[in-house]
Amino acid sequence: METNPTQYRLEGDGADIRALPKVSLHDHLDGGLRPQTLIELGDEIGLEVPANDAESLGDWFTTQSDSGSLVEYLKTFDLTTAVMQTREGLSRVAREFVQDLAADGVVYGEIRWAPEQHLTRGLSLDETVEAVQEGIEQGIDDARHQGRRIRAGQLITAMRHADRGLEIAELAVRHRERGVVGFDIAGAEAGFPASRHRTAFDFLASRFFPVTIHAGEADGIESIKSALLDGRALRLGHGVRLAEDLVIERQDDENTYVSLGPVAQWVRDREIALETSPSSNLQTGAIAAWGDELVDHPFDLLYQLGFRVTVNTDNRLQSGTSLTRELWLLADAFGYDLDDLEAFQLNAAAAAFLPLDDREELAEQIEDGFDEA
Score class of each variant (00 low, 15 high):
Val180Trp: 01
Thr6Ala: 08
Asp141Ile: 05
Gly68Val: 12
Glu275Trp: 06
Arg241Glu: 01
Arg160Tyr: 09
His28Cys: 08
Asp100Gln: 03
Asp245Thr: 00
Leu354Phe: 04
Ala19Ile: 11
Arg235Met: 05
His28Leu: 10
Gln36Pro: 12
Gln318His: 15
Val211Asp: 00
Lys75Gln: 14
Gln64Ala: 08
Arg144Met: 15
Val49Glu: 13
Arg151Asp: 06
Tyr8Asp: 01
Leu329Thr: 10
Thr199Gln: 12
Asp339Glu: 15
Ala131Ser: 15
Arg232Glu: 11
Leu329Gly: 07
Gly369Arg: 00
Pro262Met: 09
Asp30Thr: 06
Leu41Gly: 03
Gln138Glu: 15
Ala200Lys: 02
Gly191Val: 09
Ile213Asp: 01
Thr284Met: 14
Arg196Val: 07
Leu171Ser: 01
Val83Glu: 12
Leu305Gly: 03
Thr321Leu: 05
Ile136Asn: 04
Asp245Val: 00
Gly239Cys: 07
Ile248Phe: 09
Arg270Gln: 07
Phe183Pro: 00
Glu177Trp: 08
Asp59Ile: 15
Gly165Glu: 08
Phe61Thr: 00
Gly261Gln: 02
Phe183Asp: 00
Val129Asp: 08
Arg121Thr: 14
Tyr303Lys: 04
Leu20Thr: 02
Asp100Val: 04
Gly261Leu: 04
Ser280Asp: 03
Arg241Asp: 02
Glu271Ser: 05
Ala51Asn: 11
His214Ile: 06
Trp328Gln: 02
Ile287Val: 15
Gln304Trp: 08
Arg270Lys: 13
Leu236His: 00
Ser322Cys: 09
Leu242Cys: 04
Ile136Leu: 12
Val309Phe: 00
Ser319Trp: 03
Ile287Arg: 02
Val107Glu: 02
Leu305Glu: 04
Phe370Trp: 10
Thr120Ser: 11
Glu127Gly: 04
Thr3Cys: 13
Met84Thr: 07
Ile168Met: 07
Gln345Phe: 01
Gln318Pro: 13
Arg87Pro: 10
Leu47Asp: 14
Asn4Ala: 14
Leu341Cys: 10
Phe208Glu: 09
Leu74Val: 13
Thr81Leu: 06
Asn312Tyr: 01
Val49Met: 13
Pro298Gly: 09
Glu177Asp: 14
Arg178Gln: 11
Ala243Met: 00
Leu274Phe: 01
Glu342Lys: 10
Gly89Asn: 06
Val295Cys: 09
Leu317Ser: 07
Glu254Phe: 06
His161Gln: 15
Leu356Gln: 11
Gly182Ala: 06
Gly320Thr: 08
Thr313Val: 13
Ala349Ile: 12
Ser206His: 14
Gln133Phe: 13
His118Arg: 08
Ala331Arg: 02
Arg151Leu: 08
Gly306Asp: 07
Ile140Thr: 03
Arg160Met: 12
Arg232Met: 14
Ala162Ile: 10
Asp126Lys: 07
Glu55Leu: 12
Ile248Leu: 12
Thr256Ile: 06
Gly165Asp: 08
Glu167Arg: 06
Glu367His: 14
Ile366Pro: 01
Gly165Ser: 14
Leu29Thr: 07
Asp43Leu: 13
Ile287His: 04
Lys225Ser: 02
Leu305Met: 07
Glu48Trp: 13
Ala333Val: 01
Leu20Phe: 09
Asp371Pro: 03
Glu110Asp: 06
Ala15Arg: 04
Pro355Arg: 07
Ala188Asp: 14
Glu170Trp: 05
